[in-house]
Each structure stands twice: as C-alpha cells, then as structure tokens.
Design a protein around this nucleic acid. Structure first.
Lengths: 235, 235
DNA sequence: CCGGTTTATTGATTTTGATCAAAAAGAAGT
DNA sequence: ACTTCTTTTTGATCAAAATCAATAAACCGG
C-alpha cells in the first residue's frame, strides 16, 4: 500500500476526459479520486454492479467482457494503460456497469467519483464535447465489431484483427500480440483452437511468421486481400 | 412536393435532441432544416458518405445496415417514426456515415445541418447532456447486440428478440412484427430460412401462434426459459 | 382488385467451426 | 531454477446453420 502514487494534477490532465478542467474542478475531482490495485484474475466489477466510479487504467491490463450462461466469455475490449472506461454509465438512467471487468495482468487504476464528474460536466460544454467525441468513436468501433461478427467468418475476423494491429503500430514487420491468444480468441469470438488453426494456416501460406507472442508480417498485401475475402487456397 | 410539411417549432421540441433550445437557436436550426422523402428501397445515404446532416424519421420506416463483399446485409437498426439517427457522426474526426441507410417503406425525414447543430451544442451543456444520455443508451444496446451475436445461437437470438418485442409493447398477447421476416432475419444475423424454422419450432411447441406478420405469445414463461437457454426439446 | 414481384416456407445437402481429447510448450510465483 | 498451473497446438468427431432448390403465399402499385 505504501508505493501507490496518488493521482496528480498532471496525470489528470493527460487524461482526455479531464484535460481542460480549471483549478477548482481539478481539486474537487482529485480529492475524491481513489487508487485501486487489482491482482491478475481478480474482478474490478461485475456486470450489473452499481457504477459509482469511472476508471483510468494506469498500469497493467484488463478485460471488459460478458459471460454466457454456459460460461463462455466474449471480450468486448482489452484495456491498456492510459485508457479510461465506463464513461457511458454516467449518463444512463440506472447507473450500472454493462459488462464484467477483470485484470489480465496485475493492474493499478484510478477511480473517479461518478456524481462528482457529472457535476463537473454539467457546467463544462467543452468537456462534454470531448466526451461526446470519445463515445462516438467507441460507438463506431462497436458497429465494426457487430459487422465483423455478423458478416465475417472466423478466418476473416482473424485476418482483419492482424491487419488492424499491424496498422495501428504503424506497420512494423514484427510486433507483439497485445495479449494471450486465449484472450484474443475471446475478443474475436472464436475458440482458441480455431484461432490457432487460422494462424497456422496463414503461416503455412507464408503470409506471416509466429514466435510465441511475436508476429512477423511477411506479406501485408496478401494479408489484406485475405482480409477482404480472398479465400486462402489450402493444400 | 406540395404536401410536404415544413418542420415546426413544436415538432422540433418533441425531438429529444433539440428540446430545450431557446428561440434564437430554434430559429436557426429550423431555417437550415430540410425535409426529404425517400421511396421504398431507395438509399438516403451510403456507408462512407460525408455526413452533412443528421436525421429525424417523421413517417415510414428505414434500415441502417452494413453490407459484406458477398452482398449479405446486416441490419444494425430499424428506424421508426420519431427516431433520430446519425447523431454520433457530429463528433467524429472525419464526419462520414458509418452505415448505409435505405427506406423499407416510403419515408419522410427531416435533415438537420451538422455544422449548425454543433454550433448549437457548443454553448448548451444541457443539450450535450441529453445527447450523452442518448448515445450511452445506444452504446449499451450495441454491447447487447455484440453479446447476442457472440454468445447466443440462432434460436436463442430469435427467442430473445420475440421476448424483447413482447415486453417493449407492454406484453399484449398479440402484436405485429415491426418489419418483414426478411428484415428481422437481417437484424438477427440469421438467414430467412433459419428464422422461419425457428418460428415454426416455437409454434410446434405451443409457445406462440403466427398469422403472417402477427405473433400471439401463448406461453411467455416458456419463451423466457427458452431465451435463457432451455433447449427446446424437439420430436 | 389484378398481375407481377417480393417474401416465406420446407426439404436435402454441405460447410464451418465447436467440442472432445491429449500432449507439448510457456509463464508465474516461490 | 523448479514446479505447478495455464495456454497452445493438433487431430478426430459432431452439430448448427448456411446454402441450394422449388413451391406457396403475401404484398404493392397501378
């Protein structure tokens, strides 16, 4: 408990949600903020819990997910340091978390008081605007996820995911997967076995090489055309 | 063209997005609003088009959808009178529509100028708040859609859909499907044949009766338990 | 209300990806 | 470094839903 840094004004300001607050507001938000650590595998909150805080991931990694009755897990998002989440709960009629959240790696978070933030936003159209931008972007991502699940088969989803990650990192030949293959499978809504077979097939085709968590894209054009639906010819 | 009603202040105010505007703002928004009619089957806009307007459906019915390369159509939402859509595009860095929009029935819409609305929202934290509420609710719906696609099989999705519609209408035994079965299939991301077989099975089980577009729920408890995963025992 | 077009149903077949099983590889904590 | 737990891979089998095909029913626009 002694090495937990309390959030500073500077840290707050690099958080898009709260940049642009004036001295008084910052002060109030800061005093009500709490630092929380979550061990690997532990829940930060459950689907349906009252959402009294919204969160900023400072270190570690977490997953936002839903569970089926059979225990199947669909990951909605993987949260990396610097990312905030649960903002949308602030404006819901009944303020509850719409998903589960658990730590993939030991994580440190800052939790901001929901009532407090709403007060802040109420008089700050500028801040509302930034938040509207954030939520709009996330909405667009969700639409893409829906399309992906509804219109693309498992291999296409994998190819798309790889291509997105490759581009997001500015196209370095080699990059490290953001998480374990089990979790990526959960994100893509396929079984780990299916993801494994997909990656093996792409490797066999010479599109990429794989060394545990490191992926090397050998043929981005080919990957792109596969992601666009060109059936990988087996044999 | 002569029977198109120009939007009135009253109509504007019952539109949640714009209720609460003062006289000057209403005036500006109104003068820049345009009424558009779309024939059955026609597009209002395509995925990727610049989003210069956001829309209010006044009469008729429209679908928001994505297309796969193979021409498969996934419906993201069915738009009924009174519903506004495309608000999130206002706050995106590059303002383009993220989906296609086409009329299912001949429809009449009011289109509001995007730049104009952004100006209005800039000085109106109250209006921003209402919009944040709307977007948050839609975000939650999208998460539900993602869960549904990822964690529920076709029959569960159908059962869930029926139950939702039944409840949304305040549980009348009989109600009319909001659209053709082809479109509902598109919304649930199943083939029309699969939807048909699902409905037939529920009918055979005595859970519901069906007369073209009219559904009568005979056994809501049973439907509920099926939606929660109780396998319908065939034979 | 008529005629053409779209939508819905039903059956047969095929395909995709899940599931089951078991071994190998890798990671985390002590 | 050791050891235990978790993740990943590979093969074999199975089940769900798509596809193909053909007929029947419903709808819309004039």
């Amino acid at each position: 408990m002694n090495n937990i840094r309390h959030p500073t004004r500077d840290e707050l300001h690099q958080f898009p949600l709260l940049s642009g607050l004036d001295e008084t507001e910052s002060q109030r938000v800061l005093t009500k903020a709490r630092v929380v650590t979550v061990a690997r595998g532990e829940h930060l909150f459950h689907h349906g819990d009252p959402a009294r805080r919204i969160w900023l991931c400072r270190t570690g990694q977490l997953k936002l997910f839903r569970l089926s009755d059979a225990g199947q897990e669909k990951i909605i998002a993987i949260i990396n340091p610097g990312r905030s989440f649960a903002e949308a709960t602030l404006f819901m009629p009944q303020r509850v978390y719409p998903v589960h959240c658990a730590a993939i790696k030991p994580s440190e978070l800052v939790g901001f008081d929901a009532d407090d933030l709403v007060k802040t936003f109420h008089n700050d159209a500028e801040a509302c605007f930034r938040l509207l931008g954030t939520l709009s972007r996330r909405m667009h991502e969700k639409i893409n996820q829906i399309e992906s699940l509804a219109l693309q088969n498992a291999h296409l989803r994998v190819a798309h995911y790889l291509l997105d990650e490759y581009r997001r990192r500015d196209e370095p030949k080699t990059f490290r997967l953001e998480s374990s293959k089990k979790h990526i499978a959960g994100l893509l809504a396929v079984q780990p076995e299916t993801l494994s077979r997909s990656l093996t097939a792409l490797q066999r085709e010479g599109v990429l090489d794989m060394d545990t968590r490191y992926i090397t894209i050998n043929d981005p054009e080919r990957l792109e055309s596969i992601a666009r639906g060109a059936l990988a010819t087996p044999h």
